[in-house]
Amino acid sequence: MPDTESILRLNDVYHTYSYGTPWAKAALDGVSFQLRPEETVIVTGSNGSGKSTLLQHMNGLLKPERGQIYFKGQDIWQDKKNIRQVRFQIGIAFQFPEYQLFHKTVAEDIAFGPKNMGLTASQINERTEEALFFVGLEQKIKDYSPQRLSTGEKRRVSLAGIIAMQPKILLLDEPTVGLDPQGGQLIMERMRAYQQARGIALVIVTHDLENVGAVTDRVIMMKEGKIHREGQLSKILAGAPDDELPKPVITQLFQELSARGVPVNRGTMLVNEAAAQILDLYNKRKEKRA
């Protein structure tokens, strides 16, 4: 069924790892999912729930055992020869992508994808500079060895290597893990800015809802290879029990306040939103008294 609404659509996808061995494990157990252009979706869930497997299906790194994946209405596995073209248009950054940096210079590493796309040297150069700009790195580091950079910088170089392919969809697996809080925030700000500038779709696998949650339209929660909950983050936070999804501390506070009769939103998660609500109440009371 061709559709114009979604840029990517998964239809009842199944996947089993190590099929036929003692440690065979169903990783995806009938997942259907639609992604709209320019949308941001967060995928969360405990380790081993199938999040990363799902992500690798989205750009054709893994082939479903059963089910189809449509990119712009086309089944990506219909013609196996086209799978490279699909991968160029759906960029993916794995966990700790900096482990995979191996070229002599930053520029060479960023150019790896564009070179494989068959672009000319000047196009590649242009894209490298643009990608460095988007991840917030100075142009002069182009000739540095990646090994000289800090963890946060290395990660941004890895992301630049993917942005340089100018994908229509960007898939990020735990982009903030192992970074200090400001490093993590910086990455999220940059990715968000890039998404808006280019109007692409963004799918982020993460546990770090407090840092990443701010950018979200929709959250998918995976459990045992299935989509377990889906919807707005605040609604999921209000609905999911603690052992499934630990409530961010601000949400705990707001549920406590609400229990004490303070009229606040029980699904609040971010510090800014929380502060705005409390200040609003505080100012209203002050006016009333005055």
Binding site: Q182, G183, V249, I250, L253, V271, A275, I278
Partner: peptide
């Protein structure tokens, strides 16, 4: 380069 935990950040903003 550090961020306080959310409750502390909230109190600070208030």
């Amino acid at each position: 380069g550090l961020e306080p935990p959310p409750l502390q950040a909230l109190m600070y903003t208030l």
